[in-house]
Computed example of a mutant assay.
Amino acid sequence: MHCKNCGTKVDGKFCSNCGQKTNVGPINLAYVVDEINNSFFQLDRGFFFTIKRLSINPGDSIRDFIQGKRKNYFKPLTFVLILSTVYALLSTLLNEQTVLGDLLSGWKSYKDGSTLDANATVLHQWFVKNYAYSILLLLPVFSLASYLSFRKYEYNYLEHIVLNSFITGQQAIIYTFFAVLKSFTGENAVTETLYMVFVLGYVFWVYIQFFKNYKRLKIIFLTILTYILYILFVSIFTGIISSIVIKIM
């Protein structure tokens, strides 16, 4: 048996070279449950290593993690929760709306004030006030969209959650940088354009690297399809919850 992290030949429960467990399995439900039970709020040395790798070589790094090289990386769900919380807190201190707040403000501007919209507004306010938890709730929705878009490829749904967790966590760093920048420069076309280029460009960059064995143009198309499906699923998701709220009230 060889260690999936460093490739050293091992005979036992742990690699003598890097220390990773030898029984590293696939990304499945058992892995996700184990991460939730054991990893939340446990900050270790892998946190900054993960940020570095996701800044330099994100797609390859995430693929390595999924394939078993996990010793030096921070757990993905904890990663996104911590960075989303930092971004939300900093946005509050700077009196800046989060990206989710901006999106929901735009959504509200197109509504007509019906009973359904009033209840939906309450729901959306909860999403804005609880940004980090909202991101965790929306992450499986986006991952469903990416899984369906890339369903002919080798990765399962839970592996897409891992992929998008790392992306979302790293995006929170981009959000944080631009929140600070906006507090100094204010809203302007240049800042907003750069903001969108970095946020969306990062996703395309990661997906192109992650699926590098396939045609780049097709990966770009499927990434666009992922966003289209995501918008559709979120609309359905919020509509169902709003309808439930109406019945309860």
Rank of each mutant, 00 (worst) to 15 (best):
Y207P: 06
T22E: 04
V199L: 14
N23V: 03
K75F: 11
F142W: 14
G186V: 07
Y87G: 01
G201D: 10
I135A: 00
C3E: 01
Y73C: 14
I224R: 02
I56Y: 14
M1F: 02
Y157L: 06
S243F: 15
F142I: 15
F74D: 13
F14A: 00
D102K: 10
L200R: 05
K182W: 12
F79W: 02
T226L: 02
A120P: 08
V32M: 12
F79C: 02
V206Y: 00
Q170S: 13
T8Y: 12
L104N: 04
D102Y: 10
A189S: 14
N38Y: 07
T121K: 05
I51F: 07
I208C: 09
V122S: 13
N164A: 03
L136A: 04
S16T: 08
R151T: 12
L222D: 14
Y131M: 02
F221L: 15
N5Y: 02
N119Q: 06
E187K: 10
A30M: 10
T238H: 15
K75N: 08
N130D: 15
N188F: 09
F198T: 08
G101F: 01
F237D: 04
E96N: 11
L138G: 13
E154I: 12
S143Y: 00
R45V: 07
I246Q: 15
F210S: 01
F47Q: 07
L94C: 03
T78A: 14
I240T: 14
F47A: 02
T8M: 09
I36R: 02
G201M: 04
T185Q: 10
L83K: 01
L43E: 11
T78P: 09
L225T: 11
E96G: 07
S39P: 09
N37D: 08
G19Q: 00
T191Q: 11
T8P: 04
G12W: 02
V197Y: 08
N156G: 12
I246W: 15
I220Q: 12
I228W: 13
Y131E: 02
D60I: 11
H2T: 07
N17Q: 09
G59C: 10
S39I: 09
V197C: 13
E35D: 07
Q97E: 13
G7R: 02
L77D: 04
M196E: 05
W205H: 08
R70A: 03
V128E: 14
Y175T: 05
V199T: 12
L137E: 08
L222T: 10
S149T: 02
I173D: 04
Y227L: 13
N213T: 14
F65S: 06
D11Q: 05
D11S: 08
E192F: 13
R45S: 10
E159A: 03
G201P: 05
A30S: 06
V162D: 03
W107R: 12
L148N: 12
L54N: 10
S84E: 06
G239V: 14
D34N: 15
D64G: 13
K218P: 11
M1L: 05
E96P: 05
T50W: 05
D117N: 06
G106W: 05
A88T: 06
L94I: 06
K71W: 11
F127T: 09
V128K: 12
N130S: 10
L181H: 14
L81A: 05
Y175N: 11
G106K: 06
I135Y: 00
I27E: 02
I161P: 04
F41H: 05
N5S: 05
N95L: 10
N28S: 11
S149Q: 00
I246A: 15
T185G: 12
S146I: 03
G169E: 00
G68V: 00
